[in-house]
Structures are given as C-alpha cells and as structure tokens.
Simulated scan of single mutants.
Amino acid sequence: MEKVMRLATEKGVVIFTKSSCCLCYAVNVLFQEIGVYPVVHEIDKDPDGKEMEKAITKLGCNAPVPAVFIGGKLVGSTNEVMSLHLSGSLIPLLRPYTRM
C-alpha cells in the first residue's frame, strides 16, 4: 500500500495500468485528448505488481486497473472516470494538470 500511495502522489495525475489492458489505454487516450499527460505505472511490469494490485483494491477501486489518481486522491477505475467525464466533472478536476 505504501508504494502505491507514494507513486500516486508523485505527480498530479497518475494511472496504474496493465500493459495489455484496453480500458487502461482508453482512459490514457481520453486524458491526453483533454491535454493531460498522466504518469502511467504498468503494474504487470513491476516486481511488486501483485501487491500493488491488492493495495489498489483495498483502497476501494472496483477494478484494480486502470486505477486513476488525481491530486493524490483515488478517483476510481474506468466507470468512475467515464461517469465524471459524461457529467462534465472530469475536466474541472484535471484543469490544474492540463498542458493546453
């Protein structure tokens, strides 16, 4: 859990992913289209990946990946990110981290 929280707070927008996850890719592309370039940690390529996956689940993420953190706070996985985007709430959360 400590490693996940340390990595999640290093930058404004952090996504924990798996290299073969198409939903992870879609969330990353969405953020880039908004003008946000998140730090991406591929947990399947990390030696502590299994423990990180368990920690993300314990933090309350419905699916272990993608796990999106904005400003060091867990936003959630794909469903939560897309719900925020469709409601118009995602862009205001990301505004401090945009490059546009």
Rank of each mutant, 00 (worst) to 15 (best):
C22E: 15
P66L: 01
E53C: 09
A8K: 04
T98Y: 11
V40P: 08
C24L: 09
K50I: 13
E2W: 00
E42K: 03
K45D: 07
P92S: 11
F31H: 12
L7D: 15
G72F: 08
V14E: 08
S77H: 03
S19T: 15
V27L: 05
S87K: 10
L59F: 12
C61T: 12
A26V: 08
K18A: 02
S77T: 13
G88M: 08
E80R: 00
A63M: 13
V75C: 03
S77P: 01
Q32M: 13
P47L: 14
Q32F: 02
T78F: 11
V65Y: 04
C21D: 05
M5D: 10
M52G: 11
K50V: 14
V14L: 06
G72K: 08
S20A: 10
V4G: 05
A55C: 14
A8D: 14
M5H: 07
V65Q: 10
M1V: 11
E80K: 03
E42D: 09
G76L: 05
A8S: 12
K18D: 03
D48M: 13
L94M: 12
Y37M: 06
V40C: 11
V75K: 01
V4W: 00
D46F: 00
G88V: 04
K54M: 15
H41N: 09
E10N: 03
F69I: 03
V75T: 06
P64I: 07
L30F: 01
T9F: 05
E51G: 12
E10K: 00
C21F: 02
I34H: 11
K18L: 07
I70Y: 05
A63D: 14
M82F: 08
V65T: 15
C21T: 02
M5C: 06
V75A: 04
A63T: 15
M52T: 13
M100H: 04
N79Q: 06
Y25R: 07
P47N: 12
E53I: 05
K50T: 15
A63I: 12
Y97F: 15
P64G: 04
E53P: 00
N28M: 03
K73Y: 06
L23S: 05
C22I: 11
E33L: 12
E2C: 02
P96H: 09
V14T: 13
K73F: 02
L7I: 15
G88Y: 07
G60E: 15
E51P: 02
F16G: 08
P92Y: 12
K73S: 07
F69D: 01
S19L: 04
V65C: 11
G72P: 11
N62Y: 13
L23H: 05
K11Q: 14
P92N: 09
